[in-house]
Amino acid sequence: MAQRSASKRKRQASTTGQPHTHGKSRCLRILRQLSAYIDDELSTNICQEIRQHLGACPNCETFVMSLRQTVSLCRHSPAPTLSTADRALMREKILKTASSR
């Protein structure tokens, strides 16, 4: 909770005109770990460091949001389905090929 409000304060600071002062190298270090971050695979300390960075860096915050959306879209992409007729036809073909060799 305390982390969340600290992050919120930083975000507010970043959107109220405070310049984005850190160098890009930090963003790039974060960017390399973003999949592990959104998959919840990082240690508590690293997660906290990333959350703090995201709160202060609108660029990285937008980036991580779009990466999350990408994963979410993949997860919800409609599943292609087979017709009953195709299912039966393929079964016949497989058994025929298997018994012919």
């Binding site: 609108p58 937008t62 959306q69 990408t70």
Partner: peptide
């Protein structure tokens, strides 16, 4: 480029 968004 950092802030490109997926418009959803």
């Amino acid at each position: 480029e950092f802030r490109l968004q997926i418009p959803i």
